[in-house]
Design a protein around this nucleic acid. Structure first.
Lengths: 228, 228
DNA sequence: TAAATTTGTTAGACTAGCCTAACTTTACTT
DNA sequence: AAGTAAAGTTAGGCTAGTCTAACAAATTTA
């Protein structure tokens, strides 16, 4: 059993990617490099990180597996708070930071099922599945999507009530499919179809909807990610 | 902000009542008396317990308030796991022990609302309301209930699939109202009404349903309680 | 390539929460 | 009321995780 602190180190290493250094990790975690050093020795001992003096830090297979489990829990809880308890996307993170450390395999399974196995969290990040698989994904705004393509809404960028009402009116919500029917060169107004309903949306609106394209080729390197 | 450990001490003191001793608390928490002693000094310093050397331990008003908040969270989470995630009543406690320490007022409010402000948890214990009020209650089995009285189901004693199926068939679930229509002296079979539906139930069945009477006078002293 | 800067490491110390062992106070028993 | 048993306390020590300060290695830059 890992402590919450150990879990946080693994999670942070996962987000920083495989070329992390001591200082970088220290800044990320909000502790001093000396503390990171101590912990790295411990995690190396437990075979969760690869680490040699003055070298770069990376997760072992086992460490990565643990990290992904935590990310999975974090993102499932964020989705839960957002969808079921009407938290806004900027409120979910802090509480999910706590909830991600709850130990219960059954709870995670049930949560996943309860949310209907969501693919994306409210920030538009991919939720790893129960096997720890995490398809890579290229996020962009709906405004940038090509005409004729199908995409999935994964997040919003604006949290204001008027915007959110508009989103609802158009029939959109996270994990919904969207088809881009047209874009007018004149005023960049777009025509989209959601659940058979066609809407005309402004460029401003489209720029606040984050999507992943279902028709674009899927090959991209993983970035550094966010703090979760 | 209290640590999880501090919260557990307060919660335990609440369950043990106001005449707890050092040893008793140590046994309850599974630690040594010396550890309890250290912590009591700290909690006294924080004005959460009343405590003098060699004297009995009790919670201050503030300490009690904190303890009730934790009990409230524990019981709401138990109810959540039981009702929404199909945990059995003997599985909920362990996970609720972890969830009760999550810090988020909004989360607790939403949880309460999501569960429709439940009065009892799956063990039949009263859930304190948002104000920290906790009506005292006299639990008994449905078998013991008087004919003509109305009562509320608060728990089951048997967790087997056949029993639970039968419970469902009769239309019963936790926080449901039951009216006792009759009891036959011959075989102690009972007639009950649930949501307008009348059922005939065996004494064995009735003995596995825990209820609180809504028609009995409500005056009784608080007992020592359980570990939650 | 040598100096300066950045990055990483070590040693020693602190706090929370726990322990054991020894001791003190209170309560029980006859 | 004296002696024993039970309950409670203290002192000192341990681990996890943090810190500061001093030092060492690596990297950048002139």
């Amino acid at each position: 059993m890992l402590s919450q602190t150990e879990e946080n180190y693994l999670k942070s290493l996962f987000h920083l990617g495989d070329e992390a250094g001591t200082n970088e990790l220290a800044v990320f975690l909000g502790v001093k490099p000396a503390s990171v050093n101590d912990m790295l020795k411990k995690l190396k001992e437990k075979k969760l990180v690869n680490y040699e003096k003055y070298g770069k830090i990376s997760l072992t297979g086992e460490g990565r597996k643990k990290a992904i489990e935590i990310v999975r829990k974090h993102r499932l809880w964020e989705t839960f708070l957002y969808e079921k308890f009407a938290f806004t996307w900027d409120e979910v993170h802090e509480v999910a930071e706590q909830l991600e450390h709850i130990q219960s395999a059954k709870l995670v399974d049930k949560l996943d099922e309860f949310l209907n196995f969501p693919a994306y969290d409210p920030h538009g990040d991919v939720i790893p599945n129960a096997k720890g698989e995490m398809p890579e994904v290229h996020k962009k705004t709906l405004f940038e999507e090509e005409v004729g393509h199908n995409c999935t809404m994964v997040a919003v960028k604006d949290n204001s009530a008027p915007f959110l009402q508009y989103v609802t009116q158009v029939g959109l919500s996270i994990n919904n499919k969207i088809k881009v029917l047209a874009r007018h060169d004149y005023d960049q107004q777009m025509e989209i179809e959601v659940n058979g309903k066609v809407s005309s949306i402004s460029p401003r609106f489209a720029k606040n909807i984050v999507i992943v394209c279902n028709d674009c080729a899927k090959k991209k390197k993983a970035g550094k990610g966010r703090n979760n």
